[in-house]
Amino acid sequence: MKLFRRLLLATLVLIALGYSAVVAYMYVNQRALQYNAQGKVFSLAETRLPKASDVSIDTGGSTVNGWYQAPKPGMPVILYYKGNSKSFSEEHERFEQFVADGYGFLAFDYRGFPASPGDISEANILNDALAAYDWLDAQTDAPILIWGRSLGSGPATYVASRREARALLLETPFLSAVNVAAERYPILPVGLVMQDQFRNDLWIKDVSEPVLVAHGTADRTIDGSNGERLYALAPDPAELWIVPGADHSDLWDAGIWSHAEAFFRKALSQ
């Protein structure tokens, strides 16, 4: 019996030590695990955006780099907050479509992503996001439309809760980043150790703009229930577009732009 107790105690100690080691590793390396900030930076010369310009935005002690093009007269401008992987410039096809339909746009890399130097953190991303809005607001009198994709749903929702835009589009958003992490690692105390939690569930309550949420039922990165629950918290919910069978990066090809345009037109008419 004593031997059994000793073996049981030793086993429990080993489990506790192993668990603690895993938690400690994830705490120390959490930003490397959370963000995928690698990828090619495309130049404007490689795109069909001959009238767009490279811009550098002062964020107060740092600089973020991106592209800007003014809208056609009477048209709005889209402030685009990118997702978690690669550079914003990877999505130039989207910006080309915006411009082809008369919209202006501003898109950029947060600090620590390929086109912008610096360290990645939630505080820096949110600061960069506000600085980008303020820069754009100073550039144009055109109506500003906010579009946040995946990770970008965090800064997009945060900015919409603190600045005045005409509409907020959230593509494959999370309820919060900490919620996604908790669903992915249910046995770990992520709520206690996660530094960059991106609490969309709190910020959305202060968003006065009409909101469109788009998600796919087969999203393996952020479960579609995140979008549904976030939409339910929006003070001015306009549309919940759920695409059967769509994964995390499928919504552009699934036709999100046509939904976005209809949503934007309606929001601008109000």
Rank of each mutant, 00 (worst) to 15 (best):
A131S: 15
L130S: 00
W147S: 06
D134Y: 09
Q139C: 08
D134N: 05
N127P: 02
I144F: 14
A131T: 07
L130A: 13
A138Y: 04
I125Q: 15
I144H: 08
L136N: 05
L130G: 03
N127C: 07
D137M: 04
A138I: 01
A129H: 11
L145W: 02
A142V: 01
A138F: 00
D134R: 11
G148W: 15
A129V: 01
A142L: 03
I125W: 14
A142Y: 07
A129E: 11
Y133N: 01
S153P: 14
D134C: 06
D134F: 07
N127G: 14
S153H: 11
P143H: 02
W135M: 00
W135S: 04
A142F: 03
R149D: 08
G148A: 13
L145H: 03
S150Q: 10
D128H: 11
G154S: 12
A138L: 09
L126T: 04
I125D: 07
D134H: 10
I146H: 08
A131K: 03
I146A: 02
L145A: 03
L130R: 12
A129L: 00
L151G: 03
W135P: 10
I146G: 03
D134L: 03
L151Q: 02
D128V: 11
N127M: 09
L136W: 08
N127S: 15
G154Y: 14
L145N: 07
A142I: 00
Q139H: 06
I125R: 08
N127I: 01
Q139T: 09
L130M: 10
W135T: 02
T140D: 09
T140S: 13
L136D: 05
I125V: 13
L126N: 08
D128G: 11
W135V: 07
T140Y: 07
G148M: 14
L136E: 06
A138S: 14
A131R: 03
L145Q: 00
D137R: 10
I144D: 09
L136Q: 06
L136T: 06
W135F: 15
P143F: 04
A132M: 11
A132N: 09
A129G: 12
L126K: 04
